[in-house]
Simulated scan of single mutants.
Amino acid sequence: MPWDRSAPHPLLRTWTAGRGLRGEGRTAVVVGSGLGADAEHLASLGFRTTGFDVAPTAVRLARERHPGSPVSYEVADLLALPAAWRGAFDLVVEVYTLGALPDPPRSDAARAVAGLVAPGGTLLAVAFRRTPATGPADGPPFPLARAEVEALATGGLEVVAVEEHDGPHWRAELHRPA
């Protein structure tokens, strides 16, 4: 499966390591968690972690791959999330999910991702980067323009950083004031 990784995404791993991030007493959610590598990474840092995916098979395989894991793996649709998840997570991690969607419904999905962030919380997003040279792709994946990444700053979220990385990738950090 092209989205199967046995290790957390390198841009997530370096971001957490660079901050010495610890999650004790805090919650995290991984959007489109696939087979669980990113969710397991956050749980290893002490976050009470939820990983969700629209694909029941991915959720089943994540549970099988990580028996005894503290991660709560759930089947959920980004465009129809449980009301209890709104503003409920201290850390929201989104890697490639928005770029897997055409627009529409990508804009609605981006608002749903932003809506998961609790007051005082952080959103970390990783996406393929669209450049003037590459232009829009027929996708998926659909590389995102900088403006599309910055558009995650909705509902009170503020852009902390949008970084260009090799690949080409964006890594964006956003924060919701407490």
Rank of each mutant, 00 (worst) to 15 (best):
W3E: 01
W3R: 06
D4K: 06
D4F: 03
R5P: 00
S6E: 12
L11Q: 14
T14Y: 01
T14E: 14
W15V: 02
A17D: 14
G18A: 15
L21I: 06
L21C: 08
R22D: 11
R22H: 10
G23L: 03
G25D: 10
V31A: 07
L35V: 09
L35C: 02
G36R: 02
A37C: 02
D38H: 03
E40Y: 01
H41Y: 08
L42I: 07
L42M: 05
L42F: 02
S44W: 09
L45S: 04
G46N: 12
F47H: 09
F47Y: 14
T50V: 15
T50N: 14
F52G: 11
D53I: 03
D53W: 02
D53G: 05
D53H: 00
V54G: 09
V59H: 06
V59I: 07
V59C: 02
A62K: 03
A62V: 10
G68F: 14
S69N: 10
S69A: 11
Y73W: 10
E74S: 09
L79K: 11
L79W: 13
G87V: 02
F89G: 12
L91Y: 04
L91H: 14
V92L: 06
V92R: 11
L98C: 06
A100T: 06
R111Y: 02
V117Y: 12
G121Q: 02
A125M: 13
A127T: 05
T131H: 00
G135C: 06
P136H: 10
D138A: 15
G139C: 08
P140W: 01
P141D: 15
P143G: 00
A147H: 02
A151D: 10
A151N: 07
T154K: 10
G155V: 00
G155E: 11
G155M: 06
V159G: 05
V160G: 06
A161C: 04
A161E: 15
W170A: 01
R171W: 15
R171C: 13
